[in-house]
Amino acid sequence: MLHTHNRQRRVLRTSLTLIAGLGLTVAVTGCGAADTGKSGSAGSTDSLTLTVPSWVGAEANVAVAKYVLETELDYKVNTKQMGEVIAWDALSKGTIDAVLEDWGHPKQEAQYVDKQKTVVSGGDLGVTGHIGWFVPKYWADANPEVTTYKGLNKYAAQLKTSESGGKGQLLEGSPDYVTFDDAIIGNLDLDLKTVYAGSEAAQITQIQQNYKAKKPFLTYWWTPQWLNAQVDLVEVKLPEYKEGCDADPKKVACAYPNTPLQKWLNADFAKDGGKAAAFLKNFKWTADDQNEVAKMITQDKLSADEAAKKWVTANPDAVKGWLA
């Protein structure tokens, strides 16, 4: 007994030594301060990384910017898909160098732009985004009342689903998106309930499915969006947006503001990024331009690169302006 006990202790020691050895390896490599990655990809002259958000409008931005950077300025552009908030984080760390389309993240702006100063503004994208409640046109045509929130409330019963618990369903999208809908419903005393699809993909699929079946539905939606070229949606009028009516998220009872979409750059990249940084600051186009490229990608099934090439070839003056 004693003997086996000793043996156990011994092997225990051996294995602990092994584990300790592993730890030591980590510790040895850890004798110096690690590179925080700041001076990594950011600031290097020949390559940069852009984030590709999940919606096609933003993909169009990246596609065109990438094409110009690679063909005109001889950069190597990497792209990374990630969520919006996560992208801010990555932007601050320098994992990505620029975000080309941001719909407004006050909390992140405060943290990274004002406090840590790791992110700087890259100016307007030139496109104005708008969020709102939308219903399909066929339903609005049949029941013109539904285009105002008061009228809509009377038709709430038609929007009922098994998920909405006896009320009308307001379809919500990805948790990424800024939404005050629960507050708006409560404060305007509407007979509606938000149902979170959980992802943009699920929301779009649901919209397409309903649209195909010509069913009434109500959804949180926005422009510009590529799907708007496929489905005809009409916005529901909410009480008009006034400066500051969305100051307290719990008391919101008004429409969403129009958002001039913003570009943001990693601070080091903005300083040392040379021509690429200058180009991205200059990069600016209209909602129509963006939609044109987005449509090529979604409808005509061109690859992002092909679509960008087609648009750049057709619009040499715009490109020249960005490079000036």
């Binding site: 969520g83 979170y196 959980g198 699920a202």
Partner: peptide, 18 residues
């Protein structure tokens, strides 16, 4: 991610918003 709601949505929410 497909409308299951509840804890699953909270996790997805937390993940996408950090």
């Amino acid at each position: 991610l497909v409308g299951g709601g509840a804890l699953g949505y909270d996790v997805v929410f937390g993940l996408s918003r950090g």
